[in-house]
Design a protein around this nucleic acid. Structure first.
Lengths: 212, 212
DNA sequence: TAGATTGTTAATCGATTAACAATC
DNA sequence: TAGATTGTTAATCGATTAACAATC
């Protein structure tokens, strides 16, 4: 049987990450099975959405019992790439960059942070946990020699596109953009925005519109 | 004329935050006017989407010239709440919480971080810039006395729902959730997820699916 | 068996894009 | 004026929900 990895819509992928972490929590609490209704309840969704989403993955539930947590975790992990190790560099050794480099949850989730870089002479040489802040110029070498997949960009907006271009030229496969600026990347490079300030603006709009 | 603040879809709000920061950048580069085509180009959108989005806001462009940057910034800022000060507390004084409390961009954007809290005795009393980590127990008082609007949650998944409940009971209006867990909140409270690890999982899936 | 839950189809809903008249 | 660009309508596309037969 040929596995057809059909294209999965972005909205579905976002929810699949939620299913994965949710079911991991449930399993750690001793739940072996979960139904679409339970998942929907926990994640503020409809059971229809849950079942529809799960048709995208190579995995079936069982009538009357629901979905087996262990299997679901295995299949979702493989699909999302949560079952393998990823090498990551952080660019920008400001507060945010350093915090991310120190965040234990990354290692626990398979993201091995193997370098942190900056252009600021005052920051270069600074210790960040087991790492030392290095000159951005040395980054391309590092990316190719250590087979780095992902670049986390915690740099000022002004520098973001240039840093992205350098990462891309060095052969990076995916970027996580934490700056406010929109980054333009070639089709072959994956990029996700995780812009905390933009999220705060969404939040303030939502707060305003709730108090009518 | 009665202003009808129609409901704006979430996808549109997300883009409006991009238009705002983008046009602010353009203005600071001396551009007084911008067209829907330019905006689309910069933000990897279609001009149709840009024009459609801007119908939601109380503001018009001018044929042949486009949109006036200054006015657009004013109107978008007011709509999104970027024109006023917001009081914010950070819960969780781990690396991420501390980094956010120190992040200068927040103050620059009108987010006044007026407290950082934790339950860990070892962290309470620690200095974080001008702030001192305080006991989570003292948070409710702080929220009411300082009229705090927003809580940023940088706590372990296990603690997230409890912390959210405490913030909500204390009268918080909006939450920014940085933990992996989905948080359930009453309708009157606004919540936005900004989960870096979940974003990394989206990214790894995207990387995997690009190398066919 | 009866009942609960999946998997799937069809209907609905919402968001994006295309097209073009209006306008400066 | 001619041309560029908006604002708006209609068409398309995609995502969510409802409904129900199949199944354990």
């Amino acid at each position: 049987m040929i596995r057809d990895e059909k294209h999965i819509p972005n909205a579905v992928i976002k929810r699949l990450t939620k299913y994965l972490t949710c079911v991991q929590d449930l399993l750690s609490q001793g739940e072996e099975w979960v139904s679409s209704h339970e998942l929907a309840e926990i994640l503020s969704l409809t059971s229809s959405t849950v079942r529809q989403d799960l048709t995208y993955i190579d995995f079936s539930g069982i009538s009357k019992k629901g979905y087996e947590c262990r299997t679901m975790i295995t299949v979702l992990s493989r699909l999302l790439g949560a079952d393998i190790k990823w090498n990551v560099v952080v660019v920008g050794a400001g507060n945010l960059g350093k915090a991310l480099a120190l965040h234990e949850e990354f290692a626990r989730r398979g993201f091995n942070i193997c370098g942190i870089f900056d252009v600021d002479k005052n920051k270069i040489g600074e210790k960040v946990g087991k790492l030392v802040v290095r000159n951005l110029k040395d980054m391309p070498k590092m990316i190719s020699s250590h087979d780095v997949d992902i670049g986390i960009m915690a740099v000022p907006s002004m520098a973001a596109q240039n840093v992205a271009d350098l990462l891309i030229a060095s052969g990076i496969k995916g970027l996580l953009n934490l700056s406010l600026t929109h980054i333009i990347v070639p089709r072959k490079v994956a990029i996700i925005d995780s812009r905390v300030i933009a999220s705060l603006m969404e939040l303030t709009h939502s707060i305003k519109s709730k108090r009518v």
